[in-house]
Each structure stands twice: as C-alpha cells, then as structure tokens.
Simulated scan of single mutants.
Amino acid sequence: MARKAIIFHGTGASPDILWFPWLDKQLTARGYQVERPHYPDLNVEPVRTFLPKVLDAHSFDAETVLVGHSGGAALLLALLEHLSAPVAQAILVAGYWTEPNDSAEPVLQPGYDWGKIAGNGGDLTFINSVVDPYGCDAAQGRYLFDRLGGTQILRNEGHFGDWNQPYDTFPLVDRLIP
C-alpha cells in the first residue's frame, strides 16, 4: 500500500489556497500520493447527500492520512464515522462539531457515534485557536478531544488562514505527519 494524504478545504474555499498546495508539495516530496479535491458544495449540500459522494470519490485504508480545515474538518467527523476501515491519521484544523456561529452548517450531522469515529480516526489531532473569528475555537477542539482522545493543540493563530489571514505554509501540520 502506498502512503496517501487527502487534504479537504473548508467552506467556500478551494484546494488551491492557503497552505494546502504547500502541504501537498511537502508530502509529495516525502513519497505521499496527495489528493486535494475541490468540493464547492461542501457545507452547502446537506451532509446526508454530500457524504456518499465523498466516500465514492476516494479510497481509504490504513496508509491514508486525512487533513481537514474548518468545514473540511467538520466533514472528517462524518467521513470517519462512515468508513468501513480505519485510516492512519486524521488532523482536524479549526474543527468543530456544533454550529460555531450563526451560519447554517449543513456539513454537520445531527449526532455522532464518537466510538466509531475514534476507532476509524487513527492518530487523531485537533488544532484549534484560542480565539477563532468563526467560532471554530479551543472549546470546539476540547469537546472533540474529550470524546475522541488523541492530541489537542491550541494556538493563537485565528482561523489558520482565510481571505484576510495570509497563511501560505503550516509547518506544524507537516511535522505531525510521519
């Protein structure tokens, strides 16, 4: 099996912004097959109809690393719950499990099977900021950590990239992936 990484962008974003292309280059240089899918309907289409499309578009195995940012991290929760086999690692950057602000969040499920997510998530890491302008903050990360275990990393770096926050590299995420 070849090592593979799939990087999921957030709501209203694309795979060609922020630190996603940089991380792709870093991991490719280390021998990973990297996928950066573009999902414009992420957090627009309800997760119950959106998730099957994501599951069908990718393969997941014990050599797969998943990285999700914001809405992409929220998507990872549903994805991990519905996998038929565990992945090696999942890194949720600015992740959340409940509506973090007053915006609609169709990417969220009404509830989660935390045991199944933990069982399929491999080495789970949650990276959140103390203060996040969208509410994907330390409290959201702590809730996930308390239910799933793994590692919680708190920074003071906003949303780890956005339209008004240049964030072209993310060495921490690179270092977390063996």
Rank of each mutant, 00 (worst) to 15 (best):
M1Y: 14
A2W: 05
R3H: 08
K4L: 02
K4M: 06
A5F: 11
I6L: 06
I7E: 01
F8S: 00
G10M: 00
S14Y: 07
P15H: 07
L18N: 12
W19T: 10
P21E: 11
W22R: 01
L23Q: 08
K25W: 13
Q26W: 00
Q26R: 14
L27C: 04
L27S: 02
T28I: 08
T28Y: 09
A29P: 11
G31M: 07
V34K: 02
E35G: 09
Y39T: 13
Y39N: 12
D41W: 07
L42R: 04
N43V: 01
V47K: 12
V47N: 13
R48H: 14
F50L: 08
F50W: 14
F50V: 03
F50C: 04
F50S: 04
F50K: 01
L51I: 10
D56V: 09
A57Q: 13
A57F: 11
S59P: 01
F60G: 10
A62K: 14
T64S: 12
L66H: 02
L66F: 02
V67I: 13
G68P: 03
H69I: 01
A73N: 11
A73H: 06
L75D: 01
L76A: 12
L79M: 05
L79V: 09
L80Y: 07
H82Y: 09
V87K: 09
V87M: 11
V87T: 12
V87D: 04
A88L: 12
A88P: 00
A88W: 12
A88S: 12
Q89V: 00
Q89M: 11
A90I: 09
I91E: 08
G95M: 02
G95N: 01
Y96M: 04
W97Y: 14
W97L: 01
W97K: 02
E105Y: 14
P106G: 10
P106Y: 00
P106N: 11
V107A: 04
L108M: 05
L108Q: 05
G111P: 00
G111T: 15
W114K: 02
K116T: 14
I117L: 07
A118V: 05
G121N: 07
G122N: 08
D123S: 14
T125Q: 08
T125D: 08
F126W: 08
F126V: 10
N128Q: 09
V130Q: 13
G135R: 08
C136G: 05
D137M: 09
G141F: 08
G141L: 09
R142Q: 15
R147Q: 15
R147A: 10
L148W: 02
L148S: 05
G150I: 00
Q152E: 11
L154P: 00
R155Q: 14
D162S: 15
W163A: 15
N164D: 15
Q165F: 00
Q165A: 06
Q165T: 15
P166A: 05
D168L: 11
T169F: 03
F170L: 06
R175H: 13
L176C: 01
I177Q: 03
P178N: 10
P178R: 07
P178F: 09
